[in-house]
Nucleic acid binder design. Structure first.
Lengths: 353, 353
DNA sequence: TTGTAGGCGTTATCAC
DNA sequence: GTGATAACGCCTACAA
């Protein structure tokens, strides 16, 4: 059924025989255009100026032969592979998946290809993944959060340009993309306060994750500005997962504490919390208002649709990729993310004071 | 802030100078072990048997030098890149994302790396993506559904081994992984019938997708076996998305037709349908029972948790990868998927007849 | 069993 | 501006 994997056999003849298989090489283009391979390479990379006539002839040859440069050979010869490594945590995470799409789209138009590897929030795995990327000679690295130490990241950044997302790490070799999680947390909480809520619980995210901390800071700031006393008993541990949200809400309910609203550190947590409330016959939003964070796809179709903070995860990805492309060109990157924004849906409701 | 992307400079000296940068080459290993480069290559690839002493010396040299073969050079020289291309549709799809994880995990242990590209259900994009993969010299191709014609796929399969998922396409160069969607559709519908439902609506999936058709066939077969007349008015168009499910349910409700249960062609559709029902104050499962298909992560945490058909999407991915590895070894692949299984949660309920 | 000598397709260096 | 020529790091006939 199958055949051995060899597919291109070594031909003993000279390199640039146009008669060969389907592979069109740069050398063949050169021969067809009547120039040297170097000249072809030059126009391909814009390394030097070439005379209009030759340029014309080469363009034509490329077109008629259907030549496509071989990235593998390029990688060997020039040290550039036109690929950038992306260290993500779970390839199928609703959050990071969205960012990956942004990265992919943005890199593609520049002719770069992303190589995704997963760390699964596990330091050893992240190292393995990074090694795989480095041995693949990626031209750059985009790191989405993770557990690896800053020192380790900086070490890698000595070898290739690096963009990091969701971590506190700025150096002259590392460009950092930051979303304004603090303001997001502030907006979410303020929305609940404006709705008349005063007893607002918060289900935190992964405490090792900077985003989670910033969101919590926003929550506390909003309470303070409204003159509402902070009650640490209303802050529950979470881990950015649905299961974590569900368990947190169970603990909250069992505590017997009064509360009329919950701000969850991300949508997944909120969705888990919604299920927990449903199970105990607490209605959303009639009995308890609920706010999430991220505005991922599921938020729009949850029952009820979730009020949340929109942060354009897709754009975070595409901006990270854009920054990487800038660095690759030797330019100083500059990312501009849209500010966080409240999306009011049906999981929150105004209450009488 | 940034530096130009060049990082490995061409040294005018001979290739194998151990004094150079951090890059350890095969040649350096050879020199250190006192053998020729070919011998090192041989033990690396198991191409031939070498004397135990040399083997020992080489292993040692590899270890002390920390040598890691360069996949790029390997790709150029040997035609193998130790990478397999994966044509998916959307990198962040909850369904395919799960499969990607299976692929990634399975390939990793074999030293292969997946390169994911997205086609977005768009034939032209799929072709572009395929070209990108081919120019990258991937050793194999895993295709997850898509719009590209079978002929086009077969053409690619002439160049590299191929595994396809979710399509009707078997040739001697293509290995096809199939999940038993028919039985899944049957089980879902039979569950509703056993609960006492007789007016069961079906929200179909993408009609261009084989899985969708098989599931519908299962639905019809179950009705027939139970002696329930098929009513085409109870079959709604859908497209495997939440929005599609929502719109379908709206049409169903507006039609005024009697029904007490809905079988949706996938979980996403079911979740959209659940929202549509909620919006019109139709309660699940009290007024209408609802069944999905796939048992993706969101199903477990929807409100109410969704009764669905479990198909292990992760395993579909890992089996596809395993099959690819078999083909790469020149062996005949054999995939064994677990059978579909009903997962009864809280969105279905028994009714009085 | 082991070494030698190309060659993979492209880029970079250095003369012209 | 343009063309030889030598790498890049590895693999694989071929010879020994």
């Amino acid at each position: 059924m199958t055949q051995p994997p060899t597919r291109r056999k070594r031909s003993p003849s000279t390199a640039s025989t146009p008669a060969g298989t389907g592979t069109v090489t740069l050398g063949m283009v050169a021969k067809a255009a009547g120039v040297s391979p170097s000249t072809v390479s030059r126009i391909l990379n814009g390394t030097a100026t070439v005379s209009p006539e030759k340029r014309e002839a080469i363009d034509e040859a490329i077109r008629t032969l259907g030549f496509r440069p071989n990235p593998v050979a390029r990688g060997l010869a020039g040290g550039r592979t036109l690929s950038v490594g992306v260290l993500t945590q779970t390839i199928n995470s609703p959050f990071y998946g969205e960012a990956l799409r942004g990265i992919e789209d943005r890199l593609e138009v520049a002719g770069y290809i992303p190589i995704f590897v997963s760390g699964h929030w596990h330091e050893a795995e992240e190292h393995k993944a990074m090694e795989a990327l480095m041995s693949r000679r990626v031209d750059g690295l985009i790191v989405l959060a993770g557990r690896m130490s800053n020192d380790a990241l900086q070490a890698y950044s000595q070898q290739v340009p690096m963009v990091v997302v969701g971590r506190e790490l700025h150096t002259d070799r590392i460009f950092s993309i930051d979303f304004d999680n603090f303001t997001g947390g502030l907006l979410a909480t303020q929305h609940l306060i404006e709705c008349g809520h005063r007893r607002i619980a918060f289900i935190a995210g992964d405490p090792l994750h900077k985003d989670a901390l910033d969101r919590e800071a926003g929550y506390r700031a909003a309470l303070e500005r409204a003159g509402i006393a902070f009650d640490s008993a209303l802050v529950l541990n979470g881990d950015f997962t649905e299961a974590g949200g569900l368990m947190a809400v169970n603990r909250l309910l069992e505590s017997g504490l009064a509360f009329s609203a919950i701000f969850a550190a991300n949508d997944q947590t909120a969705i888990g919390a919604a299920l927990g409330l449903y199970r105990r016959n607490v209605r959303v939003p009639d009995d308890v208002s609920l706010v999430g964070f991220d505005d991922l796809a599921p938020a729009k179709f949850s029952v009820p649709p979730l009020t949340t903070i929109r942060q354009s995860v897709y754009e975070i990805g595409s901006e990270a990729a854009a920054a990487m492309l800038d660095m690759l060109k030797g330019e100083t990157p500059a990312a501009k993310l849209p500010p966080p924004e409240l999306v009011a849906r049906e999981s929150t409701r105004r209450v009488a004071r």
